[in-house]
């Protein structure tokens, strides 16, 4: 099933309480002040529930930026529609 990136961006916006429009490939733990360890756990739980996947322990610590999240989700078979 193909999924728009907006669905993923909405999860990040919800979890970190930031505007969905500010999220792009530069979004990472270094650029988002709200991205602390507690919210990181919330992010993992929200992604797993939203996309019905289970991340490995290693993956949960890898996903520290928007591009990395996309790569890991794609490894789990989530198929993003390419944005132009």
């Amino acid at each position: 099933m193909k999924i728009g990136e907006d669905k993923l961006k909405q999860v990040l916006a919800d979890v970190f309480g930031i505007n969905v429009k500010t999220i792009d490939d530069t979004t990472s733990v270094d650029t988002v002040v709200e991205w602390d360890s507690l919210r990181h756990l919330n992010l993992v739980l929200a992604l797993e529930q939203q996309f019905n996947i289970v991340l490995s322990g290693e993956q949960t610590v890898q996903i520290l930026s928007y591009p990395l999240i996309k790569i890991v989700l794609e490894e789990h078979g989530v198929d993003f529609i390419c944005a132009k």
Binding site: D14, V15, G17, E34, A46, Q49
Partner: peptide
């Protein structure tokens, strides 16, 4: 969804 609950929680804060 969990994502929506976190959004509500952030707004409340």
């Amino acid at each position: 969804t969990y994502s929506v609950y976190t959004a509500v929680s952030n707004i409340l804060d």
